[in-house]
């Protein structure tokens, strides 16, 4: 296991408001990491900084052990990064099959049909994204990421707007990708499901991050329980 992507001591300000002041994110090969935190604490911002979409006001991004001066998603993607935003990854101009072919063209090798069947969207390959439900579209986006065969995959809220049974399946796919050697980082608020699947938990709060370790360790942390999980414990 090695840390393939590190966003270190990232700081970001929107106007006068500092969203992050010293937050770090690490993605380790073979591991699924959950980035948790309350709404508005900067999880998505941190993920986008790591993906090269947002320039931080301070901090560095290292990918494959090399510090990047001005990383962009395009340049990081050429080296194996894939970023799935919380919405609108797929274009309405192309069918799901065409998107999958783009991903294969970009370095993937898996069978399109096999991936579609695995994600239960085999019948929808010729549909356009706008013809799918949000859950189906989310599965198609993960399918795109699978076919891309990334070294590191960052997914912002993969379980948003999808049913528990589909969420479970999607998490299983992400865990499989991690077991296959991919460094996976996901965010979200579906705490029980995320804690059950994650190998490691990073807690984002008050502009910084805390490495909580494995999920069972996170559950024993008093501050994490009090300030994030709440009295019901997630």
């Amino acid at each position: 296991m090695r840390e393939v992507l590190i966003a270190d001591c990232a700081a970001k300000r929107y106007g006068d408001r500092w969203v992050l002041h010293a937050a770090s994110l690490r993605a380790t090969t073979g591991e699924l990491r959950a980035l948790l935190g309350r709404n508005g604490v900067g999880k998505s911002t941190l993920l986008k900084i790591a993906a090269g979409i947002i320039s931080p006001d301070a901090g560095t991004v290292r990918f494959h052990g090399v510090a990047r001066e001005k990383p962009t998603l395009a340049s990081l993607a050429r080296e194996g990064l894939c970023f799935v935003p919380d919405h609108d990854l797929l274009s309405s101009a192309f069918s799901i099959r065409e998107h999958f072919q783009f991903a294969q063209h970009a370095g993937g090798a898996d069978d399109t049909e096999k991936v579609a069947e695995r994600l239960k969207i085999g019948q929808l390959l010729d549909a356009r994204p706008f013809e799918l439900s949000s859950g189906e579209r989310r599965r198609a986006e993960i399918g795109f990421a699978m076919l891309r065969r990334p070294v590191c995959l960052l997914v912002d809220e993969p379980l948003r707007n999808i049913s528990p049974i589909d969420a479970e399946e999607l998490l299983r796919v992400l865990v499989e990708m991690a077991r296959g050697g991919c460094a996976v980082v996901i965010t979200g608020h579906e705490v029980p499901a995320l804690l059950a699947a994650a190998d490691h938990v990073t807690w984002c709060t008050s502009g910084t991050t805390y490495e909580m370790g494995p999920a069972f360790m996170a559950r024993t942390d008093e501050r994490f329980m009090r300030d994030y999980l709440g009295p019901l414990g997630g």
């Binding site: 395009a74 993607a77 309405s92 970009a106 891309r148």
Partner: peptide, 15 residues
């Protein structure tokens, strides 16, 4: 407008 920037970037193609 078509929200294709992230897709292109994910394919390694810059804007």
């Amino acid at each position: 407008r078509r929200k294709e920037i992230t897709l292109l970037h994910n394919l390694g193609v810059n804007t």
